[in-house]
Design a protein around this nucleic acid. Sequence first.
DNA 1: CATGGGATTGACT
DNA 2: GTCAATCCCATGC
Length: 195
Amino acid sequence: MTRDDLAGSVVVVARDLIGCTIRHGDTAGTIVETEAYHESEPASHAYVGRTARSVTLFGRPGTAYVYFSYGMHALLNVVCEREGVGAAVLIRALEPIDGIGVMRERRGLVRDEDLCSGPGKLTQALGIGLELNKTDLFDGPIRLGPPAGPRPEVLVGTRIGITKAPELLWRFAAAGSRHISRPWPPGAREALEAA
DNA sequence: CATGGGATTGACT
DNA sequence: GTCAATCCCATGC
């Protein structure tokens, strides 16, 4: 997963990020769930154009967009598409790889499948806060890495927790993972490619 | 300057 | 299943 890869279509990138890794300090995990957001649809923060918050989304692909949600959670996104286009992939869940002990301390939990099974949970587990907004994912404190093993089969479904453009099939997850944020809804389609 | 919504989570019925 | 916590940010007056 190179910076050039991230410059492509945000929906394709969201699917291709499944299986890649995120590392911060001694903690790391495999991406098992993502969602795509693009300036052309109203659920995206970039839909309203460039504002103090959304300006990050229009920046260089491979930049981290970290924003504050519901007064208590930092959510991590990977900025995608070419510079000037507002688009990003929300990282919704990880399967823990390294630093599980630290994650348990930060989360106050024991079960591995609860440590990073949500966009707010994984930032807490990895110690990712708003101060990391606009940092570079190839040359910064948070590192995006290539898949460690073979690509998993990828499921496709509709995005979670939004009220606008709910029909888009822009949510992706590793098939069979026990570390995703919410059970896959009945009737969701299954992606054919694993590549 | 005041207001209201939100890409969530955890606790509770 | 429902709901409150909590605060940044976008919008409107």
